[in-house]
Deep mutational scan, measured.
Amino acid sequence: HTCEKCSTSIANQAVRIQEGRYRHPGCYTCADCGLNLKMRGHFWVGDELYCEKHAR
């Protein structure tokens, strides 16, 4: 898989955010504040991922 955020190959663990879309665990972050979304879930606003606070 290729990380959709940093565009590099994912060798080990990948986070599947949608069918066919993956990120490194470290790239699974809010587009606004950079908070890691692991164990928090994500919210779509347009084509970007946000934490609950910044999705509003």
Rank of each mutant, 00 (worst) to 15 (best):
G26F: 14
T29R: 06
A11K: 15
C51K: 00
V45D: 04
K53I: 06
W44P: 14
L35V: 12
K53H: 15
V45F: 15
Y22P: 03
C27W: 02
R16C: 15
F43S: 10
L37S: 02
C27H: 02
R21M: 12
H54F: 00
W44N: 06
R21T: 14
E48C: 06
R40T: 11
C51T: 00
L49W: 04
R16P: 15
A31E: 13
T8G: 14
D32N: 11
H1R: 07
Y28P: 01
S7L: 10
Y28C: 07
I17F: 09
L37M: 08
L49F: 05
H24Y: 05
G41I: 01
R21L: 11
E4G: 11
E4K: 04
R23V: 10
G34E: 08
I10F: 02
C33K: 01
K38R: 04
N12P: 02
A31S: 09
E48S: 10
Q13Y: 01
A55C: 09
G46F: 02
L37D: 06
I10N: 09
C30W: 00
Y28S: 08
C27T: 03
H24T: 05
G46L: 09
D47C: 11
T8M: 09
C6S: 05
G20Y: 08
C30L: 00
L49N: 00
E52A: 08
H24S: 06
R40Q: 09
T2H: 14
K5W: 02
Q13L: 04
Y22K: 05
N12E: 15
C3G: 00
M39W: 03
H1D: 05
Y28E: 02
Q18V: 12
G34V: 03
E4T: 11
F43V: 04
H54K: 01
C30I: 00
K5V: 13
T8Y: 14
L49I: 13
Y22E: 11
E48M: 08
R23Y: 05
W44M: 11
S7H: 07
Y28Q: 06
A31G: 12
R21Y: 11
P25D: 15
G34L: 08
H24Q: 08
D47A: 12
G26H: 15
H24P: 02
C33Y: 01
S9W: 00
G34H: 14
W44I: 15
I10C: 10
E4M: 13
S9P: 04
G34D: 11
Y22L: 05
C3I: 03
D47F: 05
G26C: 12
F43W: 13
C6D: 08
V45E: 12
V15D: 09
H54G: 05
